[in-house]
Design a binder for these strands. Structure first.
Lengths: 191, 191, 191, 191
DNA sequence: TATGAATGAGCATTCATTCAT
DNA sequence: AATGAATGAATGCTCATTCAT
């Protein structure tokens, strides 16, 4: 079926991109990894850029989901803390980390991909900012906090983790989770 | 003189890489930007990889300097906070941000460059970890803090800023500096 | 019915070829224009060359007809002159002109198509030469005329018109018809 | 030297195009025929289209020259007649004929090449029309002649010759020259 | 009979690198 | 030291044709 084949190709491409980099991977290599001919591949994606684009979209959706499902109702501080194990685990997955970096680099130069990023970023930031403001209203969150700046910094921290874990591997995930949870509580919490 | 020419070439390459990406930039483009012939360029750098390598080294040196000069003696928490305006300003420089991302992506796949990163990372982390431990000894830093995990997270946050500022531009630098300083004091400070 | 479908495909192909050129037109485009699938098309024509071949044959038949119906009995000079409005009109049809040029170019390199051309050319020339000779016998045509050379030149003129009308459009068809009729009468006519 | 190399490439390309057709000739084939590498060729011509364009320009210049040098002063009818041996000889050159047809077909679909054609056509037609009008003024040319229509038809005849001579070879050049000269005198001449 | 996914050789073009001058 | 023309393998992509359904 069409969707299935497309996602097979995307997985193969993700593997290649993570291993060698977007621009070091040739279409032939993707074809081989996906066990498909060049001609057939182009029925599913009209260009290499379209593959990168689709991966960017897919990744950002996953990413957004991860953080989005914690914002709706409860105490965000605790919500965020509960999501940390998953976020930290993901940031430690080598293939995920490498792909994230590649796609991010691509977004820095390819306007179409930058747009995918921008769309999700806007939603994500908006959600987090709103949650923080709600928390401030409710008294869960430090009322003196600058919600936009705090959101920026928290998301920057999440962004920076995969790259760092590619080079540094001597801090166990649970120490990161524990320390990060402590940080968030101190930083955001009222009292 | 030799060194001068080399660094001119590096500047030209940095400009190109930031604008178009490492692998979208041809040696011809670097030659034109550096006003040098292809043949001559190869007397200074034996390959494109050698240029990337040199840029990686240069950038990491700058980076290390930035944080290194704050660790030796005083209160690191205040030292870090004093360095923040410069760190934030740098992370907001588009050319710097783009180049950082490009070089980082390259490090994720090119072992020689990964090594440059690793060397500096180790020093940098070591310095920060030591400073935190010293702070704990002296009583400036929360004694319950995990120094390695905290270092990891702070550096991840710094790493993530340039990329984020490429897409998000609605939080003024001084708000970032202020909020970040507040974070560091809450997170690291004893009491 | 078979014939109907074949001619639909030919019309679609003719349209495409005229618009984009034989070798700039893909089989997919012909399929789309003819509203037929690739697999089905190949049941009607065994290759792209077969389509070009069929179009060449079709076009030359039309062409031959145009001139052939004037040769049998009457005064050829007047017969030719009476056919001129149609010939000139046809040469002014853009789609016809473009297709003629494409097919002609193809004939110059594809032996199979060259043969189609040759067959019709031989008949056509033979008919015109015979008619001129009959005219000379009957006294309608200048007896000092070289029938083969004259035929060659008249047909060359007809051949050259479509191409020229693609680029030159400032001479009204009826002026061409009038002038050409005058030419033929002066050139061929006795007295 | 640069100009020399460019014209060598053009000659090689002309040979290939005449033999196989513009779109059946690959750049590799042109490279081999010109004894040059692909990379080097692209230093001289930025694309295949640029080669076709250059050939079109070259050919049209030759063409224009051929007819242009006969128009300035004397009796155009006699001038034209004197140029006929060369025109006829050229139209009989197989390589020239094939290339002319290919380039003409290309002009029918490629706007850039159509423009080259148009430019020369305009000059050429203008020159011939003017010469005929001058002839009418001087009394050399039939005053009842429509100069634009006549020019159109004469040039169409010249255009049609190369194609026809590719298929018909049984009329000796001097018969064509003689008959054509007779035609022109009858058609154009006053008296 | 018809479909349209699949094939894979082929294409125009690029680019890191070399080397005669 | 410097030039820039030359190399040729590699790239992303296309397309006539086939064939399982």
């Amino acid at each position: 079926m069409h969707k299935r084949r497309k996602s097979e190709i995307l997985s193969a491409a993700a593997l290649c991109f993570a291993a060698k980099g977007v621009h070091q991977t040739s279409m032939q290599e993707i074809c081989e990894a996906a066990a498909i001919s060049a001609g057939a591949l182009y029925r599913y994606f009209e260009s290499k850029d379209a593959i990168i684009f689709a991966l960017a979209e897919q990744e950002r959706l996953e990413n957004a989901e991860l953080i989005a499902h914690l914002t709706p109702s409860e105490d965000i501080v605790e919500g965020l803390c509960q999501a940390l194990p998953e976020i930290v685990a993901l940031s430690g997955d080598e293939q995920y980390g490498r792909l994230t970096i590649e796609i991010g680099a691509e977004a820095a130069r390819n306007p179409a991909i930058a747009e995918v990023f921008a769309r999700n970023e806007t939603e994500l930031r908006g959600a987090l900012v709103d949650a923080l403001k709600r928390g401030q209203g409710r008294g869960d969150v430090d009322p003196s906090l600058d919600p936009e700046a705090a959101t920026f910094l928290i998301l920057a921290l999440f962004d920076g983790m995969p790259g760092r874990r590619l080079f540094v591997d001597d801090v166990a995930p649970d120490r990161l989770v524990g320390t990060l949870a402590g940080f968030l509580r101190k930083i955001l919490g009222s009292a």
